[in-house]
Design a protein around this nucleic acid. Structure first.
Lengths: 225, 225
DNA sequence: CGTCATTAATTGACTCGTCAATCAATAACT
DNA sequence: AGTTATTGATTGACGAGTCAATTAATGACG
């Protein structure tokens, strides 16, 4: 055997890929660039990954794993539903996700999903996980309305992420103030939206309770959409 | 002079560009492809557009103009704030925006914004217009809270658009069911989110009125975020 | 009305650089 | 000595952008 373990090389190459995508803002990154950034020769990339798309998908999986770890860690110390919601919001707009590299990779993977079935699968995996986390945190507060609300909150997170990520201020300075604009504003918005949704659910429940049906145990399982 | 007017040629080339981006799902489209699709020779593209990026930006402007016209038209017949909100939601998820071509172009322009200042400018122009439309429609309902809420609703629209646009079902069938998944579900979500935000604002106003301050004319201009 | 000169759009072959992927040679390890 | 990672030169294809030649229009003049 030679220099490094397969595991390590793969990691290096994936990290280099993300780094280069981050630096260029595109998937138009040459194998040479990536290899150079990983400190290996161009040929080696193809020894570990069959072709460039495979490498990109591996990088995407890596970004997703990283994000997942972030969320998991943030959720670890939580006890109340509100703490959980706070954790999810924070993680989605946290330092890890707002590095230039991560932003660049993330946005480009959206584009990749247009032409790669596998990328689409990974993206929907992320969607389902986020949805599941949100439902879990929302269920104690709004019961059967959780899935419907979670869908909107998930969409809101993605949308706001993109807005802040592509904000001129976030992106403009090539190197100077990398993380100048943090995402905490985005997280605030998400939490406010959640508050609004929950208030409305309770409002409606009270109305329907006071207004229509004297039986206090009406709906528990129903279709969400 | 020869065959066609400059205006017409530009239009043809831009349309072809969008068509090809839609077909391939990438900005990796050759000038030859575009020219062929526009029914002209490869060289001509460079006669009307200095280089490929210029052509892409022109295409992006075209998509934005189209969307704008769509919204304007939808807003034209409206009288009440609710009608206006409905119109905005509908237009954002309408047929025009959900064509495969438009989706592909839109997503790729997000990626383009990572490396092109001009693309970023256009994107933020879209953001400002959407925000302005939303504020205008929300103001009668929630006064000074409108800008804050509009920010979230704008983000929600973008996020949900992406989710439905990249949904496997929307994209999978290469040609068979082009507009199979329409965006009306997305529009529904947006309207529900707006309802929730408005309910909460009123709820809070009532609480603060009943609870804290007997003076009924407290806040009229305040910081939004 | 034709013919020819002028002007401008349009062509497509070509250049020059780039890059994904290959592979025979080599270096590092046991 | 044998095995396996690693190299880097190479190939073959492709594509952006150029440009000299071609074609179609306009109109000037006989």
């Amino acid at each position: 055997m030679a220099r490094k373990s397969e595991e390590e090389r793969r990691r290096d190459l994936i990290a280099a890929t993300i780094r280069e995508i981050g630096a260029s803002g595109t998937l138009n990154v040459t194998t040479s660039q990536i290899a150079k950034s990983a400190g290996v020769s161009p040929g080696l990339a193809f020894h570990y990954f069959t072709d460039k798309d495979t490498l990109f998908l591996a990088a995407m999986r890596s970004i997703l794993t990283e994000y997942r770890a972030d969320v998991t860690q943030a959720l670890a110390g939580t006890r109340t539903p509100d703490e959980r919601l706070h954790a999810i919001a924070q993680a989605s707009f946290g330092m890890t996700s707002f590095r230039r590299e991560a932003i660049s990779a993330w946005v480009n993977f959206y584009a990749l999903a247009l032409r790669s079935e596998e990328a689409r699968r990974l993206l929907s995996l992320y969607h389902r996980r986020l949805h599941s986390n949100l439902v879990h945190a929302l269920r104690p507060k709004i019961r059967e309305r959780a899935p419907d609300v979670a869908r909107r909150i998930g969409g809101l997170i993605d949308g706001l992420y993109l807005r802040y990520a592509l904000d001129t201020r976030t992106l403009r300075p090539p190197e100077e103030a990398v993380g100048a604009v943090d995402g905490s504003e985005g997280a605030q918005h998400v939490l406010r939206a959640i508050a609004a949704e929950c208030t409305e659910v309770h409002e409606n429940d009270e109305i329907s309770m006071a207004d229509a049906d004297p039986a206090p145990m009406a709906p528990l399982a129903g279709p969400q959409e």
